Amino acid sequence: MEKPQYGRVVLKISGEALAGNQGFGLEHNMLVTVARQIAEIRALGVEVCVVVGGGNLWRGIAGSAQGMDRATADYMGMLATVMNALALQDALEKAGSDTRVLSAIEMRQVAEPYIRRRAIRHMEKGRIVIFAAGTGNPYFSTDTTAALRAAEIEAEVILMAKKVDGVYDSDPVKNPQAKKFNSLSYLEVLSKGLGVMDSTATSLCMDNNIPVIVFDLTKDGNIKRVVLGESIGTYVGRDNE
């Protein structure tokens, strides 16, 4: 049996990644593919928590830019993450996984309230835990949620699943000459203003020494490759380790 490098992980999935090639909403094939990959690493004995974004349905910053109250726009974004979490839960259960959705905003008809010890207990019982509704507070991104939950549950690493294969010095879509980084320190991410995650999330990871691996979710099998320790994507850690 293949031996994973990490025993407990937080997988951060952007809403845009769940939209697949259609750019908005949820693409069924992408949901099925992601669910199968998560089920694969759970079968290896890895304890898995998932934090989902909501950018495929709504972005609080975009709503605020259009004149909406920022807190209201952010709460709408949190509700978008709940929709994505329920869709992912359905796909995971169809893939044969036992799951729980824990929401930072109470909505007991569809999800359990987030309680740290309950989340850990679910993982210990072999369930895949999906964190929804961000931190439950406006002005905080789902990147910050991933960093916060990783610290709370003592995860060994944050797996940052995106639609690009790592971190670049500029947008690789707009600049074909963009340089990809194989590894970075937290301070380099902050000083260069790189789009790994927002500064709050990066600082939280740095303070708690939680490494982050940014990789391409659209390539089938990448979640398992990262967990097994293959060198793909970009590694962010202390002092460029």
Rank of each mutant, 00 (worst) to 15 (best):
A85D: 03
T144S: 15
N222S: 13
V226Y: 05
S64V: 05
G45W: 12
T33Q: 09
G237Q: 08
R100P: 07
K174C: 11
S191T: 13
G53A: 05
L92C: 06
I158N: 04
T81A: 07
G54N: 02
S64R: 11
P4Q: 03
A150C: 13
I223R: 01
I120P: 13
K94W: 15
L44G: 04
D74N: 06
R59T: 12
A71F: 11
S185E: 12
K179G: 07
V236Q: 06
A85R: 02
Q109C: 14
K3E: 14
I38V: 03
R225P: 09
I128S: 00
T142R: 03
K192P: 04
M30V: 08
A178Q: 10
R59L: 13
E16P: 01
G195V: 05
A95P: 00
Y168S: 02
R225L: 13
V50Q: 01
E154Y: 15
R116N: 03
E40M: 10
N222I: 08
D171H: 08
D165F: 08
I153R: 03
L79K: 11
K3D: 06
A85V: 05
L26M: 10
E112T: 04
V34E: 05
L92H: 01
V189M: 07
R117I: 06
Q89H: 08
Y139H: 07
N21I: 06
V236G: 06
V164Y: 11
D171L: 04
G233D: 10
T72N: 08
I41A: 02
A43V: 12
V101S: 01
R8Q: 12
M1K: 14
K3N: 09
R127N: 13
E188S: 13
L79Y: 10
V189N: 01
G229K: 03
A155Y: 06
N29P: 10
V164L: 07
A132E: 02
M107R: 11
G233R: 03
M197A: 12
Y186D: 00
A87V: 04
V157T: 06
D74M: 07
N209T: 11
E93Q: 06
V173D: 10
I115R: 10
D220F: 14
